[in-house]
């Protein structure tokens, strides 16, 4: 077991624990903070995969912008710990069972997937995660979706203004 693997397991375990904490935290603020930690762990994974650009973008966009917005909204409307009405235990149980069965089902499917056997993910190698190749690809092959995503933003902007206006 080399260092990279140790890092992989550590990051994964950390991410999973944090994700579970997101779920079980009573206080929404704590949930947000745990989620930020999850994002950091995932960014760590990206770095491990040498996807530096995505790692940084993940932090900037998710941890830096999106989660700030979440935190912002939660603080703004001041959701208290106790104000969230809890679902019935039964419903919760069903939810957990559903999620768990989804997990087991998909994992068992993946286990059977023969073409994946023996395929590995090279860690800390490769240059495709760096900004140069990504930029090239983005503005050559993917320029159409890139432009089109601006439409998405326009509509989101119009919508946010529309909804936010008094």
């Amino acid at each position: 077991m080399n260092v990279l693997e140790i890092i992989f397991y550590a990051l994964s375990a950390f991410a999973l624990v944090c994700a579970i904490m997101v779920l079980i935290s009573k206080n929404p603020i704590h949930s947000v903070l745990w989620l930020i930690l999850v994002f950091f762990a995932i960014s760590g994974h990206y770095i491990l995969l040498n996807a530096q650009f995505l790692a940084i973008v993940n932090i900037i966009v998710y941890a830096g912008a999106i989660m700030v917005l979440f935190l912002f909204v939660i603080m703004l409307i001041n959701v208290k710990k106790d104000s969230e009405p809890q679902k019935q235990l039964f419903v919760k149980l069903i939810g957990v069972i559903a999620g768990g069965s989804f997990l087991t089902l998909s994992i068992s499917l993946v286990k059977q997937a023969m073409p994946l056997v023996g395929k590995t993910v090279p860690l800390k190698e490769g240059t495709i995660g760096l900004i140069h190749p990504l930029g090239k690809a983005l503005f050559n092959d993917y320029v159409v979706p890139f432009e089109i995503s601006s439409v998405l933003f326009l509509s989101a902007m119009v919508g946010a203004v529309l909804i936010g206006k008094k």
Partner: peptide
Amino acid sequence: CGISILTSFDNLLMLFLGIEILSIPLYI
């Protein structure tokens, strides 16, 4: 615009974008 993408996409990325461009205004 989203609809025009959805009628002509040939890549799953465009499908995803098209659906989102269609959906987000609908939410609003």
